[in-house]
Simulated assay, not measured.
Amino acid sequence: MTDLPLRGKTAFVSGSGQNIGRAIALHLARAGSNVVVNGSSDESAAETTAAMVKDAGAEALVAMGDMGNPDDISRIAEAALAQFGTVDILVNNAARRPHKPFLEMTTQDWHGVMDVALSAVFHTSQAFLPGMVDKSWGRIINLAGMKAIKGYFEGAPISAAKHGVWGLTKALSTEFACKGITANVISPGQIRKETATEDDPARAARIPTGFMGQPDDIAAMAAFLASPAAKFVTGQMIAVNGGETT
C-alpha cells in the first residue's frame, strides 16, 4: 500500500472550493488526511472538492461560512471538531483582494480585507490549537501572496493584512514549537487558475522560469509542510514563484 504520511490526521482548508485551496485539499487527502472543505458562497464548488477528497480515499466535511465572520468560524470549528475530534492541519487560504486607490478606500473596504486575511488566522488558530497541543502535533500553514509582501499597488489592506499574517505566524512558531507544532507561510507567485489552459504571456514573461505556476505547485509545498518530514521547518516564509523574487 502507498505510504500515507498523514493517515489519521484532519485538515481544515479555508477557501477550498477551487484553485489553490482545492489543490491543497486534494494533496492532503492523497497523503491520508481527512479534510474539512470550506467556501463562503459557492456550496456546489465545495461539494465538488469534497467528492474529490472522498475519491482520494479520505473523509470530507463541507463547512460553509464567511472566514471574515467570527461567528461563522466558531460554527465551522464546532462542526469540524464534532466530526473529527481535532483539526491537526490548519491551512488559511481564504482571502479578499479588492483593488482601490488608498484615498478612495472606506473603513468597510479596510475591514473587509483585514477580517478575512488576518483576523481569520487569529480565530482559526485559537479554535484548533488546543487540540494540536493536546496531541503534541500540529501544522499551521498560512498563505500570503508575493505582491502582498512586497507592497500591493492600490491594495493597502492586502499588504497590511499579509504582513500581519507573517508576524502572527512567526509568533505562533516561537510559542508552539516546543509542543510539536509548526507554523509557516507559503507565498505563491503568479499562479494559473485551474480552469485556464495556458499561461498569460505577459505575466509569464516576468517570471525567470518562463511559465506561470499551477495550483498543484502550491499544494505540493503545503503537503510537504504538513508532513512529518517537515518537523524541523517552522517560522519560515517559503516563496513558490518561479524565481520572481530572490
Rank of each mutant, 00 (worst) to 15 (best):
E43A: 11
T106K: 13
A11W: 10
L28E: 07
A60P: 02
G65T: 02
P5H: 04
P101G: 10
E194I: 10
G235E: 03
R75S: 11
G235R: 01
L26G: 05
L26W: 00
K135P: 00
D200A: 10
H99Y: 15
G151H: 08
A226N: 05
Q108K: 15
D3K: 15
F122V: 08
R96D: 09
S40N: 14
A229H: 11
V113M: 12
G17A: 08
T195F: 12
R203E: 10
L129Q: 12
E43H: 08
N38V: 02
S159V: 09
T197V: 13
N184S: 08
I207Q: 03
K170Q: 13
I191L: 03
T209K: 10
V116C: 03
K100L: 12
G210W: 00
G210V: 00
A196W: 00
M67C: 15
N34F: 12
A50W: 07
D199N: 07
V35S: 00
S44Q: 14
A11H: 07
A202M: 15
T245V: 15
T246Q: 15
A120L: 01
Q214P: 10
F102D: 12
S136A: 15
D66Y: 03
D88L: 01
I181T: 01
A11Y: 10
T195I: 15
D134Y: 05
N93A: 03
T86H: 11
L4C: 07
A177L: 12
D72I: 02
A60D: 06
E78G: 13
Q214I: 13
L103F: 13
W137E: 06
A183N: 06
G65V: 01
D199W: 02
E198I: 01
T174K: 15
I24F: 03
E154C: 14
F12Q: 02
W166M: 14
G210F: 04
A220C: 06
V116G: 05
I140M: 08
P130N: 08
A171W: 05
T2K: 14
V116Q: 04
A63L: 12
V87L: 04
G210P: 02
R7L: 15
G68V: 08
H99G: 09
A29S: 11
V91G: 02
R22L: 02
Q236F: 01
I207A: 09
I76G: 10
Q214D: 07
N92W: 00
G235K: 01
H27T: 06
N38L: 01
F84S: 14
S159I: 10
A77Q: 13
N69I: 11
I89G: 02
K162Q: 15
P228I: 00
I24V: 06
R203Y: 05
R22Y: 06
L172F: 07
E244S: 02
M221G: 07
D217W: 04
D3A: 14
G213V: 04
F102Q: 11
F12K: 11
L225C: 02
A144N: 09
G243D: 07
I186F: 00
G85H: 08
M132E: 04
T49E: 12
A60V: 04
T197H: 07
G21E: 05
P101Q: 06
L81E: 09
I141S: 05
A223K: 14
A58V: 00
R75N: 06
D216W: 01
A77N: 10
M237I: 15
V87S: 09
L129K: 11
K162P: 12
A220P: 07
Q190M: 11
A25S: 09
